[in-house]
Design a binder for these strands. Structure first.
Lengths: 195, 195, 195, 195
DNA sequence: TATGAATGAGACTTCATTCAT
DNA sequence: CATGAATGAAGTCTCATTCAT
């Protein structure tokens, strides 16, 4: 099986997001995904090595685009403050724009086994590096304190945004997520800013 | 089945922590836990309604003690700064003291289904309230800004500590966890403090 | 899974022989065997490691008894001629007495993969050694020529009897198998006898 | 689908022998044979009705040539003894000359289902008739005993040679096969010869 | 209370065959 | 003639839970 891209590849990824968001990770049989994608069960295996590969690919595709977008936007901003705000806004925005994807990334994909989790983390590394870049730039420009432990700061930024999104998902998207960006931004900026 | 404490009840809980930490959530069969606990498979069902109930009970027992300890200690402290530091230190300390438990709470139990996750969150509420108390007290005493969104602040505090612990677990406990408390404390305090 | 013996173990073996003889090797699903044995599918796996293990065990059990019987009888006979006749008669007799077993050993079990075939051959070794013993004794007593290549002689004896049985099975047991023993005996004896 | 010979037909047959000898019967998918033959999967079905048809055709082609050769050679010989020797020698020789084919005929094709086995036996009939001819001629000429049961004698001859070849294949061709011909010949001749 | 043998539902994946191009 | 992407049926095995002892 050489991995192939193509229309069906996309169809299956989209179907997987939808089916997993709707039925939960452990109740998302390959046959269900195939049906939703409008292909035969066996066709899945022409595009993916196995079921787990669907999930990893899903995360790679979606997260890849996610990171790329943020990266592109960040390049345009000049001030650190705005860079941080933009990062938060876009993170929240992209997940708010796709409820199914939010459910999958915040809840369902975390039910996977450790091995899959590690592969997901591999993909996440790109995003974490982006965060590091902003922190380091902030320190360099004197906006953030030199004493900051970059690793801990990154864990704070990611941990905070992630927790905010997860709470929103578990509250079943009952409120506007992006609206929380300013509060989050203020807190994180405060945390890092030189006093 | 009337739930009942007893020596075997404890034995099974401890066995579950050990087995899950060692074998992973999805490879921790009831029979394995029973064997580790030194009881027959059927005996499990005299003490727990089903497998999920073992996990919820595990979390309740361990987290209950966890929260209680923190609550007790916090009562003794006077300054907000020290209360926050204590909360962080104890959170890290307790998990660092029990690697198996850390693996189970940070990684394995998150592989459970949504329903179980909700029941776990129910247990977590006690801890989150504790955090809220500290924040509200800080605001009341004028140490923390009045503009703070308490919910977001709580999510930042919990999200940050949780992310720090998870990273430590995934790095296989290669460094001292409590040693990170001051850094975490400084960042979080900064975030909340009136400027 | 520690292999257990017991009533169910026997039941499953017998059911397997019957089902395989009736439906053919490749159409004998575990569920079919379980049903015939009057146990649940899962029960099979309390007694056998996997499906292949049923087949190997089946062969070991049946062939073990088969060889044992022949060995016991042979011990009683004195003359080589009669030993050889007895071996042929018992081989034919035992398979004629159990048509299902004959179908399974002559046709169905040979459809198994090489690995299983090797394990089956391992069991067969006991029988082949028995044949060797007769040949060597015959040579020692001067009845059989010293020039005989024991290995080839053994292959002739086994190959001939096996072919005779297989033909009988494929002709659907239309004639008396043991009735052929004298003819087979005469030919094989002639082949080996000093001239 | 009118069956038709042609370059590709041969290619596919040769590919099947090679693939089956290398990968085993149950691991020889149509796609693997197609790839080895250098044609598309679908092309197989322009030359063969289905997968089984490849195997039967393979056996027919190879065995047909096999029998023809032996038949031709036998015609030239005058004495019965030499005819029998020739038959043995050629049988061993042809399989020794093509290890892949030997593996396929002695081991792999026997893993096929009963139906296929029957069709293979159909092809074998030509060979068995050839053996019968030699036996009958021997009896007619007074070299072989009149008491001989021709069917049993044929089964002995074929069973013996077949067993000898199978043992050679399973010992992974570690010794010279044709070298065994004299021993086999002596035994079989002895068996049949008038005393 | 305690045991542990027995149950049986449920899903991933393979691969021979087809057919539109 | 030739291709190869797509199909979809079908089977082994695991493991939470029960219940007779």
């Amino acid at each position: 099986m050489a991995k192939r891209r193509g229309q069906k590849y996309e169809q299956i990824i989209e179907a997987a997001v939808k089916v997993i968001a709707q039925n939960g990770y452990h109740n998302s049989q390959v046959s269900k995904i195939a049906k939703e994608a409008g292909v035969a069960d066996g066709t899945i295996y022409l595009y993916f090595k196995n079921k787990e590969d669907i999930l990893v690919s899903l995360f790679q595709e979606k997260m890849g685009a996610f990171i790329q977008k943020i990266e592109d936007e960040l390049a345009g901003e000049t001030s650190i403050e705005e860079k941080l705000l933009l990062l938060i806004v876009m993170h929240l925005q992209q997940l708010e724009a796709d409820h199914s994807l939010a459910i999958v990334t915040q809840l369902e994909l975390r039910q996977s086994n450790i091995e899959l989790r590690n592969r997901i983390n591999e993909v996440l590394k790109g995003y974490l590096k982006l965060i590091d870049t902003v922190i380091l730039l902030g320190i360099k420009e004197g906006l953030f304190s030199e004493d900051i432990d970059v690793r801990i700061a990154r864990q704070m930024i990611f941990g905070t945004i992630d927790e905010v999104v997860t709470n929103w998902v578990m509250k079943e998207h009952k409120y506007k997520l992006v609206a929380l960006a300013p509060s989050v931004h203020r807190l994180l900026l405060n945390a890092l800013r030189t006093k």
